[in-house]
Computed example of a mutant assay.
Amino acid sequence: MAPKASKSKEPVVEKSILGRFSSHLKIGIVGLPNVGKSTLFNTLTKLSIPAENFPFCTIEPNEARIYVPDERFDWLCKTYRPKSEVSAFLEIHDIAGLVRGAHEGQGLGNNFLSHIRAVDGIFHVLRAFEDPDIIHVDDIVDPVRDLEVITEELRLKDVEFVERKVDDLEKSMKRSNDKQLKVEYECCAKVKAWLQDGKDVRLGEWKAAEVEILNTFQLLTAKPVVYLVNMNERDYQRKKNKFLPKIHAWVQAHGAEPIIPFSCVLEKTLADMPEDESAKYCEENKLQSALPKIIKTGFSSINLIYFFTAGPDEVKCWQIRRNTKAPQAAGTIHTDFERGFICAEVMKFDDLKEYETESAVKAAGKYRQEGKMYVVQDADVIFFKFNVSGGGKK
């Protein structure tokens, strides 16, 4: 029986997303010196990156790919027992500490800010622990002050960039009557005013045409942020910390993006233990590693999702950016699939898990045939039909 075509609906107008339209996106770990950035990176990757107790120990951004934990992927692998298993991954960059005045070059700031420009999202690590053996660049631990220092440095760098852009466009407009120059100029002037008002670009309401222009700039404050609050193990265990309420209030007033408390000390302890010992330690102390949540939240924050292809040969996660349509999703497997796209045969993962087999999903009427305008959803299980030199199917 042929899969059912989904009922026609009014086209959904998707909100334009700031950032690169790509499946190869990455996130950078950002913060002041000595807040736990490199220790977090080391724990995530189990790579030996220097994390000595002094500013600027990380000069070049270190990079690693981290598997995204997913029980749905595990279930598919257990069900199909494939020859090959390919999980989704998050690419993480460890970026050296910023200091006040970075936008003017303080503390090798221009170099480090360029590393932030090259990523698509930010893990902003905040120090919410006191330890006399670990120096703070401003002597006193104050996470809200640290938040304001970093966000201001990124914003000032964006102001500098947009001011140059406005000047260049003004000169170009004197030499040309190109209407697009005026559109870009008006957009840049609007962004400049927004930034000078102390607001980050990602928190603004921008028209689709403006988003298209902004996405060519890769502005620092346009990048989504996940705030990671590094505290000592005791505070993490009891879920209390004297700095957290003020951090929460600040974040709520500046975009309400995700906040994840964690403990670098605990994560390092768990990483150094054998798996069975770490599980026992967590059970005895009523603790849980925050790393899976950090990885999943970071992946989602940069607008990545993935669909599955599943069978006895391979179960694989295919990473795409949110709002990707079926032909472009097919193109992540092979460019021929996009060129010769006929349709996508789609099952929701939850339906497959409930009914257990593809044939049972079909019998329940949950197996659908989608066309070129279908926007792929997270955890769709898809088989693509395409026509290249006589036809074929994935």
Rank of each mutant, 00 (worst) to 15 (best):
F41K: 00
S289Q: 03
V251E: 01
G31Y: 00
V162D: 00
I27A: 11
E63C: 06
I247E: 02
E52P: 10
S389G: 07
E267G: 01
K207W: 04
Y80C: 02
H93A: 10
R155C: 13
D133H: 14
G392C: 09
E356R: 15
A256N: 10
N387H: 13
L244T: 09
F243H: 11
G311P: 00
V346S: 13
I135E: 13
V68C: 12
K353T: 10
I305R: 06
F123S: 02
K26W: 05
R202H: 07
T269N: 07
A326F: 00
I140G: 08
R368K: 05
T79E: 09
D139A: 15
M231S: 06
E358P: 15
K385I: 13
E356D: 12
K280P: 03
K199Y: 05
L169S: 05
R155I: 14
V144Q: 06
K316I: 02
K385D: 03
A330E: 00
G19F: 02
C187S: 03
G365T: 07
G19S: 12
I140N: 11
D142Y: 12
D168M: 12
D272F: 10
I95V: 08
N34V: 14
Q328E: 04
P224H: 12
E71G: 13
L90N: 08
S6R: 08
R234P: 09
V30L: 07
I259C: 09
E356C: 10
P327D: 03
S38E: 05
N285G: 14
C264H: 07
D133I: 14
F262M: 11
N285H: 14
V376L: 11
D133M: 09
L44R: 02
D380R: 07
S114F: 08
Y367N: 06
A88G: 05
R72T: 01
Q180H: 12
P82N: 05
F112L: 13
N285W: 07
V166H: 04
V30N: 00
K394N: 06
K157D: 01
N53S: 11
M347K: 04
G28R: 01
L108N: 01
Q218K: 02
Q377H: 15
D380S: 15
L181G: 04
K372Y: 06
P292I: 11
E314S: 10
G311L: 05
R65K: 11
V229F: 13
L18K: 00
M373Y: 07
Q180C: 14
E277K: 11
P55C: 13
V201H: 00
S389V: 08
Q106N: 13
I49R: 04
L304H: 03
A118G: 08
A363T: 07
E10M: 14
Q252S: 11
E314N: 10
K393F: 15
I213R: 01
I135D: 12
Q252A: 12
K165P: 00
P261S: 15
L291W: 05
K207E: 06
D200A: 15
L154A: 05
R238S: 04
R81Q: 08
K78Y: 04
L25D: 03
E148T: 15
N215Q: 02
Y355M: 10
E212W: 00
E153D: 08
S389Q: 14
C282W: 06
M173K: 04
D313Y: 09
